[in-house]
Write a protein that binds this DNA or RNA. Sequence first.
DNA 1: CTTCCTGTTCTATTACATGTATAACAGGTA
DNA 2: TACCTGTTATACATGTAATAGAACAGGAAG
Lengths: 153, 153
Amino acid sequence: MQLSLDVDSDVPIYQQIRDRIVEALAEGELAEGSALPSTRQLGSDLAVNFHTVNKAYDLLRHEGLIRVNRKSGAVVRRDPESGPPDPAFPDEWRARLRTLLAEAVAQGLDPGEVGQRVGEVLEGFGHEGFSHGESGREEFSGAGNAVVKGGPT
Amino acid sequence: MQLSLDVDSDVPIYQQIRDRIVEALAEGELAEGSALPSTRQLGSDLAVNFHTVNKAYDLLRHEGLIRVNRKSGAVVRRDPESGPPDPAFPDEWRARLRTLLAEAVAQGLDPGEVGQRVGEVLEGFGHEGFSHGESGREEFSGAGNAVVKGGPT
DNA sequence: CTTCCTGTTCTATTACATGTATAACAGGTA
DNA sequence: TACCTGTTATACATGTAATAGAACAGGAAG
């Protein structure tokens, strides 16, 4: 697993961390039950403050994608006790999808080509994604497999 | 044309304005040559400062989607003199698409259903979008057809 | 020419977001 | 006991968002 950050991006660091983990979930790279590194550990690997990582984990928890406790750290799992999935999610998601697709069309990309690109990405997520895990606990990120792009210029 | 804002959103106002206009472009609701309202006019309609609208127009101009001059105000058009389209756009766009799709899959939406939703949105943009305009100048927004959601609580 | 509306630029202020930092506390593990 | 975990609180520096007022330049219309 490669967790890459771009320090020069306008996207906040905690958002990038959250995004990369969500993508790993969709890819099936992080199966249900997989352990995530501790906030301090990941912060150390990425050379960012552990509060920043904590903020990313907070996002994921509020989205119902991970479960966190002191005993076992952060674990990939939809927590049954964190309430039902947000019922407003589909509509909000669709609105964001609409904006993103409009951007591509406005920039001149052919609608057909756009559809094709979507298909390619969905193929990568395929049918092995999330909630089909075997509850095996693979390591998500040990020491030294973090990559940071950009940096001091 | 309905330009709706959500003041309670975490999305900045200038970004919302930019997003709505991009969507109108993709829909073909704003054809090439269409006049956009002046920053002061639109700011007045939306009850926001004209600097905020100006920021949205700045974004659109840097994206090459509109052309602005003192004579005719803001006009929908890819300005030939504002340089070629950003060559990095397709890759950056694909990265954002990947994140957005991953979010849906991680939340449990079926990949097939996701693909279907994408198709629906693209249908709406269809083949009438952008750069097929007749250079006719329709009014984009007159007085009173702006809608603001949310507000003081 | 004068008046009006346009975009553009400059400065300033208030409020919030971001990221880092230090410290302390609670709970499970070795 | 010692260690590592998550959690919370506070503080600080920096940047962004949004508003506001003022001024200037250029085209349009009287």
